[in-house]
Amino acid sequence: MRYRTPTKNALGLGSAKDGVHHWWMQRMTAIALVPLVLWFSFSLISYAGADYHTVTAWIGSPLVAVLLIALIASVFYHAQLGLQVVLEDYVHLEWLRIASIVAVKFVTVLLALAGILAVLRIALGA
């Protein structure tokens, strides 16, 4: 008797329970980061030495604010996915591996939220 329904094969999630989600999102964030990182790096050339008001006016302009939020979200999502793979490979104590992966998730989410809030504060003039 087969206990598995056809749904199991249709979902195709396998033993990891999330199928290729991790792998796929690592590639999606990587593709997003290519133009975002190049744009940010070359923009910083002219704003690195600029005064406070010039920099905040740049951060707060609508297009820049949106791109910065996209950059922050992609950076920390991509960082979390990458660090998870490294921890899975090198931390052999099970409790420590799980604890460090959870800790990395929490820290990256907090850093992303802090960065996004900072951009919104500047953009919305709080």
Partner: peptide, 18 residues
């Protein structure tokens, strides 16, 4: 891994500006 740690600087820079 180094970039993940260095991403702290991105947040720090933006929070300082805010």
């Amino acid at each position: 891994v180094a970039l993940a740690v260095g991403a702290l600087l991105l947040t720090y820079w933006l929070v300082a500006a805010a």
